[in-house]
């Protein structure tokens, strides 16, 4: 559904060099610290910036070749942008009705009421969370096949985040759909994504299926002596700590079987990101 191959964009002090793929039926996550290149990647996919090199294919077309009909097949949430703050939800309804041939007006209104989104209030008076919820509801209300969601859960409390993720899971129950989502809340991605790309300094530093990440990846904690005696064949990153060393491995079982004295933790995606970025190779 979506493929980026060696997409490059050079800014002053920052360069993007990214390859990723979102397959049909998959929820793909993009994680990384602030300024890692997540939003730039999303903007490249949506044709909002011109890339210097590489190829982007959305539904088999370059973003610039996408016709309004193709764009109808996409639903978008952007971290730093949305509908004009001078409009109300009631103003948006006829506009969305005209924009999308498959817009489900009644469902949109029902979901707005479910998420307590006022219909007559100007959007500039909405909280960040309300704006996000509105964008997500708008994105899924026209039977889009591909959702491009940049930080859709930012600014939401735990309950609202859970409700929104339920909504997205429900969306994915229909075949032939896919989602590319970025979030700085790893818990959202762990429970929702099929595979995860990790981006740092504009480059993809890791791509793995979430199940594999959670089952095979682990954090080893050890003393200096244990570290020097360790077989480092399956160590991805290491980091000096006060107690000795922390190591990230993608073969947790190997160390569990061969080094029973080591402390081996499952490692959350947050810890994984920290090790991948701050650890040494």
């Amino acid at each position: 559904m979506l493929r980026l191959e060696n997409v490059r964009k050079q800014y002053k002090g920052f360069g993007l060099d990214c390859s990723l793929e979102v397959r049909e039926g998959f929820v793909t996550g993009l994680v990384g610290k602030n300024g890692a290149g997540k939003s730039t990647t999303f903007k490249a996919i949506l044709g909002l910036i011109h890339v210097d090199n590489g190829d982007i294919q959305v539904f088999g077309k370059h973003p610039k070749e996408l016709l309004p009909g193709d764009r109808e097949r996409m639903g978008v949430v952007l971290a730093d942008s949305g509908f004009s703050g001078y409009l109300t939800v009631n103003n948006l309804i006829p506009m969305l009705d005209r924009l999308y041939t498959k817009f489900k007006r009644e469902e949109f209104i029902r979901k707005c009421s479910e998420f307590e989104i006022p219909l007559n209030k100007k959007l500039k008076e909405f909280s960040t969370g309300m704006k996000r919820k509105l964008q997500v509801i708008a994105a899924i209300s026209h039977e889009a096949e591909l959702l491009i969601l940049d930080e859709p859960t930012a600014g939401l409390d735990v309950l609202a985040r859970d409700e929104l993720l339920c909504l997205l899971r429900e969306y994915m129950e229909t075949e032939g759909r896919a989602v590319l989502i970025s979030s700085h809340i790893s818990g959202d991605l762990e429970g929702f994504c099929d595979d995860i790309y990790m981006i740092d300094d504009g480059r993809i530093i890791l791509h793995e299926e979430t199940d594999v990440l959670l089952s095979d990846y682990g954090l080893l904690k050890m003393t200096d002596e244990q570290y020097h005696a360790l077989d480092k064949s399956y160590i991805l990153r290491h980091k000096k700590e006060e107690f000795g060393y922390s190591c990230l491995t993608d073969q947790k079982q190997f160390y569990q079987e061969n080094y029973p004295g080591l402390v081996i933790e499952r490692g959350s995606i947050d810890e994984l990101i920290m090790m991948m970025i701050r650890g040494e190779k």
């Binding site: 903007k43 949506l46 044709g47 909002l48 016709l67 309004p68 009909g69 764009r71 109808e72 996409m74 978008v76 952007l78 730093d80 942008s81 949305g82 509908f83 004009s84 703050g85 001078y86 924009l99 999308y100 500039k124 964008q135 491009i148």
Partner: peptide
């Protein structure tokens, strides 16, 4: 100006509307 408010133009151009349109 209203379209541009809080970087709104960026989102507007992800909707099924071409820049020419």
């Amino acid at each position: 100006s209203y379209d541009d408010f809080e970087n709104g133009m960026c989102y507007l151009l992800t909707l099924p509307v071409s820049r020419r349109e």
